[in-house]
Design a protein around this nucleic acid. Structure first.
Lengths: 201, 201
DNA sequence: TCCAATAAACAACATTGTGTTGACAAATCA
DNA sequence: TGATTTGTCAACACAATGTTGTTTATTGGA
């Protein structure tokens, strides 16, 4: 058996091993769904449609995804993973970055992927995606050090408040065509939360 | 023609005129969908299923709703309208109610409808519903008087921040089985927002 | 480079859900 | 009661679904 090595290696191999055809297929299917999503709700999109637009056989679709929702989920995954990687790289490159810098960078990334982000956060969007953004923020330790004045158990609620609040602001920013700069938006959030019983970074 | 009167009267009549049979049909269909929603995602629920569970002919379903999503939307509508009415009545009954009282009452209402609220805010839930809750909060003037220290345009973002933040807190509260009392939750939100550049009531 | 193993893509299939139609029965309300 | 509305049912054509076995492309080792 080739794969009887360390888990890490296995995963590495699996990633590299993706067939050119598979790569292409997945790419066009993703593009097709994103395109259709800008026209109508995911529930109104059929697999037949996605495949016709992508010029891929329907059977091929089923070989990779269970349904439209599964495909969307993987699109979301990709975006979130890329964002995470982007922030990680930024943190390494600029070790002295403070919270506002990282937030600004986050807004920049969202801006660069505005079309997709807007779709995923649109009114037809899924609450699960919002939750996963929250988990990401949580994981990357953007929000930290709950104030000691808080009772135990309360801090979790303040976290929820802040993170969902941030998502709401991002959403509004996208909807209004990103009129303000990333720096201004980052500053606005800092300003909103600076008096909350949590501190950052 | 009977209905050639003032628009107001027409609507009144239309509302009152709902047939008992129609009422029953709509009721069982709503119950059926809510029941199915606790088992699986709305996208996996077929109209056939809903009708079988409700023991209603599929044709009858189509007489009232376009699809599952339309039915769900109307369930949401009903919940939001009832909440709005509930708060309005409370405000009239207790004219000296301050913000924390109204918030508490809101949590009480959500608690009384916990099963449905939880479903609608679950990870499969729709962002549109969240947005409509926000509109409701906005309409009932729960959040008011933006601080004059804010630049124009910024206040809107703080609104978004606060309201989505609140929804996040409600969500977490429901998910964790409503361990804290409504009063405590209301206090927690007040505590979170009291230092924000907005005031309440 | 070539060959064999592997996996992807495809066309055709039966199945299922959809949404609509028209005829009929039951319930409503004035 | 009698006119009207609404629900029911059977049947319909249609479209989307998910699975079958077969063909074709890619990869990695000799």
């Amino acid at each position: 058996m080739v794969y009887q090595t360390k888990t890490g290696e296995m995963i590495m191999k699996k990633q590299k091993k993706e067939d050119r055809r598979v790569k292409y297929t997945k790419m066009v299917l993703k593009e097709s769904l994103i395109d259709l999503l800008s026209q109508k709700d995911i529930s109104a999109i059929t697999i037949k449609e996605i495949c016709e637009e992508a010029d891929v056989n329907r059977t091929t679709f089923y070989a990779h995804y269970a349904d439209q929702y599964d495909l969307l989920r993987q699109i979301e995954d990709e975006l979130l993973q890329n964002l995470k990687a982007y922030i990680t790289v930024f943190k390494q490159k600029k070790a002295d970055a403070i919270f506002v810098d990282i937030l600004e960078e986050m807004f920049e990334y969202i801006k660069a992927n505005a079309k997709l982000c807007k779709l995923l956060l649109s009114k037809e969007g899924n609450l699960d995606f919002q939750k996963r953004i929250m988990m990401l923020v949580y994981d990357t330790n953007l929000v930290a050090k709950p104030n000691e004045t808080l009772k135990k158990g309360e801090e979790e609620y303040v976290y929820s408040f802040v993170i969902t609040g941030c998502v709401g602001v991002i959403h509004k920013w996208l909807e209004e065509g990103m009129k303000h700069s990333s720096r201004i938006m980052a500053g606005m959030i800092i300003n909103s939360v600076k008096n909350l019983p949590v501190t950052f970074e």
